[in-house]
Structures are given as C-alpha cells and as structure tokens.
C-alpha cells in the first residue's frame, strides 16, 4: 500500500470553556482522498472540534497541522493556565492562531450545521463571493475595472461550477427561496468554490428525508472524485456515515472513544454503550 499523504492532523486538541471541557485531548488524522466521519451523541463536541479547525475558536491546548504545516497551536495561558482541566498542559509552547478567513485561504472550506447562505443574494452571487478571496485585485482596480480578465475568470469559474452541480437553471434564484435540500447543496457548492483541499461538512444531511440522504451520499462521493478533495464530515444519519466513510472517529463527552473502519465501529462495544447507554446492572 502506498504511503498515505496526510492532510489534516489534530494532536491533543483540547477546548475548555470556563470549567467545561468540550473537546478533550482529541487526536485524529485525515489522509488525502479519504472521506472521514466524526460521529457522537449530541453535545459530544463534534462541532466544537470543527470550530477549532476552522479558526472560529482558539483551542485551549494542542496543535493542528494542515498538509504538514502547523496552522493552529496553543497551550493554556493566562487565567486558563490555572483552571486548565485537560491533559498535556506542558507539551506545546507556541501560540499560533488564525482567523477563519486565513484558514479558508490555506485550503479548508466548511459548511454549517444551520445553513448560512447569503440570503439577500442569488445562487450565482453566493458562489461568486467565494471567488473574491483569490482574486488578484485591490479595491481601486476592482472598482475601476482595471483587470477585466480577473473578473471574467471569476465569472467563468462560477458558471462552470454551477454547471457541474446542475444548478445553472436556478442561478438567478434568491438563495433563501430554494428548497431545503438545494440550499444544502448550494452551501457545499459555495465551499467548493474556494478551491479547497479539505472540505468540512457539518451535518449535511440534517433534516433530509431518506431519499435525499441517499442522493447526498452519492453527491459527496462524486465531489470527492470530481474536485480531488478530502472530506471530513459530521453526521447523525448512521446509514449515510456507514455508506460513505473510509474511517470513522467517535466522540463522547469530548473524548475520542473509538476510531476505525465502519465495520469495526459497528461492533465496538464502547460506541454501542455511548449511543444506547450502559445497563445499570451489567
């Protein structure tokens, strides 16, 4: 088997809010071309982990590497140094923290659990905004249309993306007027427009019926093939998770309780306990 190219690696990531440790010493890795799922009961800390990766939160402790480059690193500082309840408090010395836009520029794109589209704008404009980040122009040259080529390139790429996603006929529709499933897909399309290497999907199947979920599974596999992206997905629909993921990480109360292939996870006792509860008299 060929050497796996590592895309994302979390080492000892801990996120503590006041006295609550939302993510506790989480280490995981995602390799190139994989679809990896992060699952766990409600409140297990999955979205918090996402927010640490994308720069929304600054983790209390730990390190996150993306394509071999450290993008986030922190250790308990200030007031947190005393109240820190996690592990490995002295392992990391540096503090590297970046705003979400910088992380996106590195090549990590995400979608949101509760859809966050630009409501007042059309499908086309929603995708076009993602192209702004890599546009080689400043405000003056953009205002006075100095670089017509750049603008044309952004428009062409947006049209091409919408065509491949089969959204060309709804491109002038206002984003909030789309049916729910399409809004989800538009959010994924918008994330793809930032040319990511890694795509983070936060509960993409939330609120979908079984039929839509099936279609979504095929869609996620399709975009992995088409856009050469690696996917990390948070999901509650077990049939979707089992169907698409190469590997699964299971979180419970902020801690990693299991990791492995879908078959391994299905038979893992601690996972079953976490989801169904442990019998009192066992």
């Amino acid at each position: 088997m060929a050497e796996k190219e590592n895309v994302l690696r979390l080492s000892d990531v801990t996120m503590q809010f006041g006295g609550v440790v939302a993510v506790n010493n989480l280490s995981m890795e995602v390799n190139k071309g994989e679809i990896v799922a992060l699952i766990g009961p409600n409140g297990a800390g999955k979205t918090t982990a996402f927010n640490c990766i994308t720069g929304v939160y600054e983790p209390t402790n730990g390190q996150i590497e993306f394509c071999g480059k450290t993008i986030v690193e922190n250790h308990p500082r200030g007031k947190m140094a005393k109240t820190y309840a996690g592990e490995n408090a002295d392992k990391y010395k540096k503090t590297i923290s970046q705003t979400p836009d910088k992380i996106t520029q590195c090549g990590i794109a995400r979608t949101f659990q509760n859809i966050r589209l630009f409501g007042s704008q059309t499908v086309y404009e929603n995708v076009l905004i993602a192209k702004h980040m890599r546009a080689k122009q400043n405000m003056l040259s953009a205002t006075f249309r100095v670089n017509q080529k750049e603008e044309a390139r952004m428009n062409a790429e947006t049209l091409e993306l919408l065509r491949r996603q089969g959204m060309l006929d709804i491109k002038d529709e206002k984003a909030t007027n789309l049916p729910y499933g399409q809004q989800r897909r538009l959010e994924i399309a918008r994330a793809l427009a930032t040319d990511p290497k890694l795509l983070l999907l936060d509960e993409p199947a939330a609120g979908m019926n079984p039929q839509e979920t099936l279609e979504l599974a095929a869609f996620i596999k399709q975009i992995r093939a088409d856009y050469d992206v690696t996917v990390l997905v948070i999901e509650h629909h077990m049939d979707l998770v089992m169907q698409i993921s190469d590997r699964i990480y299971v979180l419970d109360f902020g801690k990693l309780i299991a990791a492995g292939t879908p078959a391994e996870i299905q038979n893992n006792k601690s996972v079953i306990d976490a989801y169904l509860g442990v019998a009192e008299d066992a």
Binding site: T54, V56, T99, P100, D101, K102, T104, Q105, A109, R110, F112, R116, L117, F118, G119, S120, Q121, E125, L128, I129, A130, K131, H132, M133, R134, A135, Q137, M139, A142, T143, F144, R145, E151, M154, R190, A191, T194
Partner: peptide, 30 residues
Amino acid sequence: VMLINSSYGRAFKAIRDDEIAAEAMGINLA
C-alpha cells in the same frame, strides 16, 4: 455604484448578510 458592483461590493454584502459565513468564505472581516 461601481464599487458596490465590484467583487469588493459583493464581499461587503456578504458581510452584511452573514459575518460568520463571509469569514468562512475567506473574506477578511477587519
């Protein structure tokens, strides 16, 4: 008007509609 119809204007409108999503699209809020 030209500014608002340019790529920067779209970024401004994105910030107005949803700051968190705009930031996730790589728009530097500050």
